[in-house]
Design a protein around this nucleic acid. Structure first.
Lengths: 164, 164
DNA sequence: TATTGTTATACTCTATAACTATA
DNA sequence: TATAGTTATAGAGTATAACAATA
């Protein structure tokens, strides 16, 4: 392929010995190659890195997107509920929700029946941002689903469901 | 089931109204439920948490295990090679390999042909530890594979391979 | 000039203990 | 006494910039 594109005028040179090619050694990963712990992790990290970039376009991180999304779909939830649903610790949630509140995306309202907790709601701006971020997410997710082929997504989710 | 085990002597009481049941609300995760970015991440985190516990029995973390394993299978590799193979940054590798060296598990030998790099090797103790940790890893991995059912592991690895 | 290993540094995510106010 | 939210803090993991020695 390469040689064919060199043009007719030049003498047919064999591929130049590029000086000191990077020369990455083939590395044997042993049992990591087929480990259910290792490769899935690498794959997930790659997908997550993509997600960070995608949500970055909306000024969000994957975590803050999931929080906004859950609040939007379940208005009135208290902080602990969101934490339990998303696997976030209450203590680490405070800073996250503080930021979202100070950005005017979320409102904390004192719960009517329990003075200890807050009922969480999206503001109008929060709803707009979630709608926008969801579009980005749908596109990203569809691209991944395409890579998996028909039925691939369901298969993958089914398999992973068995792990937990 | 529960009532049947209450014994014949007691009056048949209906299940006690446990006071203030936790009462976790059903939370709608919306598109996260089927997202290729979200559920796989949660599943991976759960598996990884298990792995931390498993390798902890050998005084290792998943990362240090993978480093020892790769060095054991590819003796003489330089630091950059291990980093490239495992997706670790050179700069973050230094502390990791320092620890493994100070624990007497890895030896850094000046490379014969390149005074800049080290050739990495396992010590005898390193080899013993890797052998032990591999047994733990095999057991853990086999348990996960069992959950996935026959052919499940290959399917999973195949699908994830398509993502990257 | 480029590469290898290194230091220093910072940022994110996660984890634990302890406090307060309500229940 | 238990729960909801909070603060402070510490530990991983990861990211960038810059340097010395060597190629």
């Amino acid at each position: 392929m390469r040689a064919a594109r060199q043009g007719a005028g030049r003498p047919a040179a064999r591929p130049r010995a590029r000086r000191r090619k990077p020369e990455l050694p083939r590395v044997d990963l042993g049992p990591l190659e087929t480990s259910i712990g290792y490769r899935p992790r690498r794959a997930q990290l790659a997908v997550f890195e993509d997600a960070i970039r995608v949500f970055g376009e909306a000024g969000l991180r994957p975590g803050s997107f999931s929080v906004l999304l859950v609040i939007g779909r379940n208005p009135g939830l208290k902080q602990s509920d969101v934490c339990a649903a998303l696997g976030i610790q209450r203590t680490n949630f405070v800073g996250l929700i503080d930021t979202l509140e100070s950005r005017g995306l979320v409102a904390r309202r004192r719960a009517a029946n329990d003075g200890r907790s807050y009922a969480l709601h999206l503001t109008a701006a929060g709803k707009r941002l979630v709608a926008h971020a969801m579009k980005l997410q749908r596109r990203h997710d569809a691209a991944l689903a395409r890579k998996l082929g028909p039925g691939g997504r369901d298969e993958l989710l089914d398999l992973l469901g068995k792990l937990t």
